[in-house]
Write a protein that binds this DNA or RNA. Structure first.
Lengths: 341, 341
DNA sequence: CTGAAAGCGCTAACAC
DNA sequence: GTGTTAGCGCTTTCAG
């Protein structure tokens, strides 16, 4: 019951291995009769080419690597799905690895993937990744690489991102246009670019509506956790009664604030509007349902794979590539935690 | 800048390919001096073996396949993570594919994986999978396969499961022991085994406490959705005022019921206790926080990989295997939606 | 202690 | 139209 090979088919048919190979691939210089014979037997034996041999011969595996900071995560899981489905459509399979948001792990995993001779690598940088030698190393090895979501401007390659600044601008704009006069922002720690960009978008929206920026209305959290959201809500309730709108940098923070403010007796959105960010699953099941910004993970994954494939092809054909950064559009999703206008 | 190979190292060192290969693998019949020379040069050139060639030669790829019904799913994402991390530790990489809970897709993906000559396959059967020829085909191809979570008793292979019946028994028992007199059950559609087993566990718990089973207290839903949970809650409120405990077959159903019952003015857990199933992330952020049953995805993934690896080894060494079914223990997690006792 | 040689299964240039 | 040959890079047996 061992796997049929070209040589076995060749032997039973009294042909050469080369002829069988060509027959199966419909080379024009093989007679119709031979092709028929070969294909029939191959079919009957359930022949499939040995992929190791093909890879060795063709120097390509039709496998790509995907490094993701956190697999158990609504947004990132959507990215995985987008990549996997897009890849499958094009005959590629995906090896997924989790970097745990750690530079050291990321580095090791790049080596694993490179040693496996994958045809390309998709990677979202860990938050604490500052040095980029490891990504450089991928490029030096002649392996195409595409950065998605958390990128670095210092690396020259294709990139797939969302425009965090614009998305945050839109979210804040929605709050203001729906009637909020005093809009607070719950942000994350200083470092990652996403935090900075969303903060910038918030500020730009205020400016756009001629509202003076007030640093007392910006609340910084360490963990982006549900609990952090609740604590900020306490602070708002006690010390900033005049706040009537909150743009939180993640849905989890927003949900924490939403839950706590209601516990404290406020009505949402009548007393205070809240909008989150990411459109996580949980936004659909809060009471009231949370307005948010859709962060299109699936589409990003899809786009990232397509760009990678393009580069793989360019690479095979020795075309030189001009690196692009593609922005996937976001959209404000208005549910019930903000006022309509 | 092309990849160094054994023959390049051999050439520059004036040795044969065979010697270099053996030196790198510390064969005892190579002199220390030669080993040193070879290793130093390999190190310097950053030599890594070509994995295609190794695979072809050794007939193994150190890659396994993982077929999962739904990637964007808290429980399944945890399984992926468990598999990926356990595999990485043993030098294996994981190709992940999503079957969309469809038999046809499942079948196609098994072929993809088999054609890629993976060393083994991990698969959770789609809900609508009834025929098992495709899994049989894996075994016939001589590729180890382990079933996890959604299994079939008709297939003879290693399996990793939780004891749904016992878990449901424990959940119901907790409700009864904490004082509930009339315990309802929200269940899913008839087919999947998990639904059946959890229903059985519910019934056994009633029996264990000498409570008569009442089919009017069993609510069947089609989609296991948040909305379904809400609708059942309406039904309970209108027609079954005496129900004081609910065991829902998923956290989402439980959350729907919890939200709706509170909207209707009931206090939880004072008027009615609710317990869910799976310990999804969302259970921690409901108000009150949802009691549930922990479904250990990470551990299942880990265990599934370990079993697969064992079988891969057995297979390599021509040991014949006795198939086992391993149960990963679950645990009732008491939070605030059920009474303490 | 080292190397020659065979072979894993497939592809493609070239010869016949 | 078909076959021969070489080779992808590595491992391992066997001879020296």
């Amino acid at each position: 019951m061992s796997k049929p090979t070209l040589s076995k088919i060749a032997a039973t048919l009294g042909l050469s291995v080369a002829t069988v190979s060509k027959a199966l691939k419909d080379y024009p210089d093989i007679s119709f009769a031979t092709k028929k014979k070969v294909k029939e037997l191959a079919e009957k034996l359930n022949y499939t080419p040995n992929s190791y041999a093909q890879s060795l011969r063709n120097q390509e595996s039709k496998i790509i690597g995907l490094i993701i900071p956190e697999i158990v995560h609504h947004f990132f899981a959507n990215i995985i799905l987008g990549v996997v489905k897009a890849a499958e459509k094009e005959g590629y399979l995906v090896i997924t690895l989790q970097s745990d948001e750690k530079y050291e792990v990321e580095k090791k995993q790049i080596e694993l993937l490179l040693n496996k001779n994958v045809d390309g690598i998709l990677i979202s940088l860990a938050d604490n990744t500052v040095d980029h030698k490891h990504v450089k190393h991928i490029k030096d090895s002649g392996v195409p690489v595409v950065l998605y979501d958390k990128i670095s401007k210092l690396i020259n390659c294709h990139k797939i991102v969302i425009d965090d600044e614009k998305a945050a601008f839109d979210a804040t704009k929605h709050l203001i246009e729906s009637g909020c006069k005093k809009v607070a922002h719950i942000r994350g720690p200083l470092k990652p670019q996403t935090t900075i960009d969303r903060f910038k978008g918030y500020k730009r929206a205020l400016k756009h509506f001629n509202i003076e920026f007030d640093n007392n209305l910006v609340f910084e959290t360490k963990n982006l956790s549900f609990k952090d959201g609740k604590e900020i809500a306490d602070d708002i309730y006690r010390n900033h009664k005049d706040i009537d709108g909150v743009f939180a940098m993640t849905d989890l923070l927003a949900t924490g604030a939403l839950v706590r403010l209601q516990e404290l007796g406020l009505s949402i959105p009548e007393d205070i509007s809240i909008i989150g960010f990411s459109n996580w699953f949980l936004t659909k099941i809060t009471t009231p349902r949370l307005s948010t910004v859709n962060q299109p993970g699936y589409e990003m994954g899809e786009a990232a794979f397509k760009m990678l494939l393009e580069e793989i092809d360019d690479h095979k054909n020795n075309r030189n590539v001009i690196y692009e950064t593609v922005e996937i559009p976001t959209k404000v999703i208005i549910r019930d935690s903000t006022l309509k206008h």
